[in-house]
Design a protein around this nucleic acid. Structure first.
Lengths: 201, 201
DNA sequence: CGGCTAATTGACCGGCCGGCCAGTCAGGGT
DNA sequence: ACCCTGACTGGCCGGCCGGTCAATTAGCCG
């Protein structure tokens, strides 16, 4: 009587497991997560997790793939709606990237865990994005909109890494004396960055 | 007869454990390290670890404290031998920091693990360093050596975070198309950074 | 030399980890 | 209506995790 009407929906079940797993992995990393805890959190049995994903490690891979896929498509969408190369576009790209990371803290942590594992897979996803971005920078350099004496890939790398570290290491520097808010920091970073990449007249 | 001559040297034992523990924690993080593995690696019994450090977590704290102490004193030494404020000194500080991280990859990883734990202790150690650095920037701003419209703490933060992320996420971006070597990247970053912080004439 | 302190050992423990398996059962194809 | 696939369950397992303890012994101090 009290037994819930058994309704089977494997896709929903998979989704529930992935959702709960992502939350736990983001928070604790791979090895600190216990399948029993995950099962409780996703409201499924431990066996069901194995049924759908095989092993803890395969689940970890699935979680990462799903999240990085989301990251990648979001970035691609941003890139495609970019307009003509000019300095303002570079500024807007940095702002967009910064705000994307701010609004997706889970991805940032997942990246961090993955970096510590030495997994280069997430970097490979970026190859297209970075390649396109660097190409854009190269064109801007040729048109005289950006200074020519800097490797275009490094231009992309500098702002990507600054934004990433700002959120990855928040707990480290948020109490530094004089440190400002997200927006204040972004503003100051852009002052340095934009001034540093445009040519001196 | 085969028994090794029992020589007791508790300080050496502690040091051996700390050494081995640091290597393992740096590599795998807290929860993935097994005390049995550590014991084997340090060539001591598991009980001896508990005798000297109490628990796995206390050992983890001891390892972090020791490493961060090393980091802090090294940075302090660098800071104290700094000379008169001018733009060249800022450049040299960035280079020194970058090369310190390159030569101490363990500290970088330890920081990363600690960030993911949300531990703000390592950031507190930096307060003095950052405070002194920011003060130096402020003075340079007043003398007209650096532009005045940027929060001094943010100047420090930008180069610290870029250098840190370069090494933390090496596996992520090392295969990006067009990405250069450590030195090439540092050179390009300095071009952007130095040009971004000096005043326009 | 005797005795105390603490370093060191190895046997041992309860708990729980990830994973497996036999079996049940819902739902769609025919 | 039947059946078969695979979603799902509960119980179980071997192993090993971090941690404890009693016993042994090296080193030091008086």
């Amino acid at each position: 009587m009290n037994q819930k009407t058994q309704i089977r929906d494997p896709e929903l079940t998979r989704a529930r497991i992935l959702e709960a797993a992502e939350a736990l992995f983001v928070e604790q990393g791979f090895s600190a997560v216990k399948l029993s805890e995950l099962a409780r959190s996703a409201e499924v049995t431990k066996s069901l997790i194995h049924h759908h994903f095989g092993s803890k490690e395969q689940l970890w891979e699935a979680v990462k793939n799903r999240a990085f896929e989301r990251y990648f498509t979001a970035q691609m969408a941003m890139l495609e709606e970019a307009g003509e190369p000019d300095a303002a576009l570079l500024r807007r790209s940095v702002e967009a990237y910064f705000h994307f990371l701010r609004d997706n803290p889970g991805v940032v942590r997942l990246f961090a865990w993955t970096h510590l594992e030495g997994d280069s897979h997430c970097g490979e996803l970026d190859n297209q994005l970075v390649g396109a971005g660097a190409e854009w920078v190269r064109q801007a350099q040729m048109r005289g909109l950006l200074r020519k004496d800097i490797n275009p890939t490094h231009v992309i790398a500098v702002f990507v890494m600054t934004c990433t570290q700002w959120f990855e290491a928040k707990c480290h520097h948020q109490n530094w004396p004089g440190m400002g808010s997200d927006e204040a920091f972004l503003e100051d970073f852009l002052k340095i960055f934009m001034e540093g990449v445009v040519p001196r007249e």
